[in-house]
Amino acid sequence: MHAPAERRSEIELELNGETRHGSAEPRTQLCDFLRHDLGATGVHVGCEHGVCGACTVLVDGVASRSCLMLAVQADGRRVDTVESLARDDVMNDLQQAFSRHHALQCGFCTSGILMSCVEYLERVPEPDEAGVRDMLSGHLCRCTGYTGIVRAVLEVAGQRRAGESQQQALENRNDV
C-alpha cells in the first residue's frame, strides 16, 4: 500500500465491536483519527510523544499509545477505547471501583489508565501492589498520587477472582 502525503487514504477498522470507515492523511495520528473522524472523544491526547499515556487504547487487545501510531496503520485492526467499557449506561467493574476509591479527580488521564488496566488484568489476574505501580508507571496522573488507582485495580482483581471461584462453585454444584 502506497499513500501519498497529501491524499487521504481509506481506513476500515473495528472500533469497540463495530466496523467503522474513515479516511486520513498518512501523518494523522491514530488518536486524532479516533477523536475527530470516528467521534471516540474518550481518547484523550496529552503529550503527543508517548510519555503521558492519556491516549492509550487497545489495538488488537494490546495496550498501545495511540499518539505513537498512524491512523493508516490501524487499517484492518481492532481498536477498543474507553467507550467500550460501559454496557447500557452502566459502568463496568473497573470504572465503578475508580469512582468508589476516588481514583480520579480531573479525569483527563483516566480513560488511558482504564485501557491499560483492561489488558494488564487479563495478563496478570493476581497482581500485587508493586506490579500495579509498575504498570501505572506508564501513565502520568497529576491529581491523585496514584494511591486510589492502585486500590481500585487491586480490588477489582480480587473481585474478579472471587467471582470466578463463585462461578466455579456453582458449576460444580450443577454437576452433582
Partner: peptide
C-alpha cells in the same frame, strides 16, 4: 505537535 507531511508505504 503534529508531524510534517510524508508519503507512507506499507511494505
Amino acid at each position: 505537535m503534529k508531524a510534517a507531511s510524508f508519503d507512507y508505504v506499507r511494505a
